[in-house]
Design a protein around this nucleic acid. Structure first.
Length: 272
DNA sequence: AGCGGAACCTGTCGGC
DNA sequence: TGCCGACAGGTTCCGC
């Protein structure tokens, strides 16, 4: 499900609702949702902690807790966070409940069970965050960074944009959109890209992700904001999930191919 | 080291 | 109508 803009939307939604709240009690309903721990140990470890802040790194959510610790969440494909008055019992897909001091409950729910919650002593001690590439919306991500890395790679450009070690936060929808906006074919080998094309990818990445954040993300099937509303950026997608539809730029029917087991959408007419 | 492919899960949709 | 395969916004692991 969620890529950088969707996770950012969730983080912003949560921030106003749970910052400053103390987790009075927690219950975890599925063992594998808390890898490396057990439902009981996880619940015991987190209870009594106050949520100081909610932030994002790539597609991860970081809940800074006090006393010092970090709850690291990943939504994977179908994970969601909801804040609500406590329902009488957990819904079938609810994986964890956190009772807050204000009487509400923070619910982590996840139909497909890929999403995870993990506790760490501090953010600097999370190995998987350390291998991530730069955030695409910071100054670190520019053509000077990207060009030499593409030059050194024989991978196809679209799968390479999904590599979180190269740049962190782009997923399957936005990768197709970015390459369409940049007029670059997704199957081009990364090292074949000209400087101008790399510059276009940098600029379009920034523009598209910022715009998607502004529209609260993309709801293709089941992404929802914390308040259960859909995002609106699906109304602005140019190619994703639009196989056979006319290209918005040149009218040639859009195509779908599979790269590294994932769908890619593009226009054979105007992407070069 | 780096690659491709399978695995982790559940639900939905389209074709026969 | 019903069954069966394909597919879904992501990451990790395994074998070569």
């Amino acid at each position: 499900m969620p890529e950088l803009p969707e996770v950012e939307t969730v983080v912003r939604g949560l921030r106003s609702l749970i910052t400053g709240q103390t987790i009075q009690r927690a219950e975890v309903y599925r063992e594998k949702t808390v890898p490396g721990s057990t439902p009981q140990a996880f619940a015991a470890a987190i209870q009594g902690h106050t949520i100081k802040s909610v932030t994002r790194r790539a597609k991860y959510l970081l809940f800074q807790l006090e006393p010092n610790s970090v709850l690291l969440g990943h939504l994977r494909m179908t994970g969601k966070f909801v804040v609500a008055d406590p329902p009488s019992e957990p819904a079938p897909h609810d994986r964890a409940w956190f009772w807050l001091g204000n009487g509400q409950v923070l619910i982590f729910t996840d139909m497909r069970n890929f999403g995870t919650l993990e506790l760490f002593p501090s953010a600097t001690e999370i190995p998987k965050l350390q291998v991530l590439g730069p955030e695409p919306l910071t100054e670190d991500f520019d053509a000077r960074y990207l060009y030499p890395r593409l030059k050194a790679s024989s991978k196809e450009i679209k799968p390479f944009l999904l590599d979180q070690r190269l740049v962190a936060g782009i997923g399957n929808i936005y990768a197709s959109e970015i390459l369409f906006a940049s007029s670059v074919l997704p199957q081009r080998s990364s090292h074949s890209l000209k400087k101008k094309e790399v510059q276009a990818i940098v600029e379009n990445t920034r523009r598209i992700l910022l715009s998607a954040i502004e529209y609260n993300g993309t709801s293709v099937s089941d992404f929802r904001q914390v308040d259960e509303k859909t995002g609106e950026f699906q109304n602005f997608l140019q190619v994703y999930d639009k196989e056979s539809q006319p290209c918005p730029r040149c009218e040639v029917p859009l195509q779908r191919i599979v790269q590294q087991q994932r769908s890619t959408f593009f226009c054979i007419g105007c992407q070069k």
